[in-house]
């Protein structure tokens, strides 16, 4: 059970909400819609997404340990399945579901 009082809990959650809002609203506040977006940011808007998706993939895998446990093998197999399914059928839902089921089977029954 938490040792904080209700108002301390409220302030803590409020701080987290404010921090999150700041990171989301800041770009839109700094660069309002009625002015043209600076060229450098237009460029970043184009090339950032690809890099950020790479970051997100790594972020999802951040707790996988290559040196211990199952050595990241189930993750590797499941990702290969996702990629192959997607190159083959190009059905987003199918690729995601197929890869996830494959991963669940691997971690529950094989590793």
């Amino acid at each position: 059970m938490s040792s904080m009082t209700l108002s301390q809990q409220f302030v803590t959650v409020l701080m987290v909400v404010l921090g999150t809002m700041l990171t989301r609203f800041l770009p839109f506040l700094l660069f309002p819609a009625d002015k043209p977006t600076p060229k450098y940011l237009q460029y970043l808007g184009k090339v950032l997404p690809a890099a950020v998706f790479g970051l997100l993939v790594v972020y999802c895998l951040r707790n996988v340990s290559v040196l211990s446990g199952s050595h990241g093998i189930p993750e590797l197999i499941a990702i290969v399945v996702v990629v192959l399914l997607h190159l083959w059928k190009k059905q987003m839902l199918l690729s995601i579901a197929g890869g996830t089921v494959c991963y669940m089977l691997l971690v529950q029954f094989v590793f």
């Binding site: 690809a50 993939v57 999802c60 990702i79 997607h86 995601i96 991963y103 669940m104 971690v107």
Partner: peptide, 17 residues
């Protein structure tokens, strides 16, 4: 167990797209 891989799979697909 393992259901949370759905997020990883989704970002892999989006990365690929």
């Amino acid at each position: 167990e393992g259901l949370d891989f759905v997020m990883t799979a989704m970002f892999v697909v989006i990365f690929l797209e």
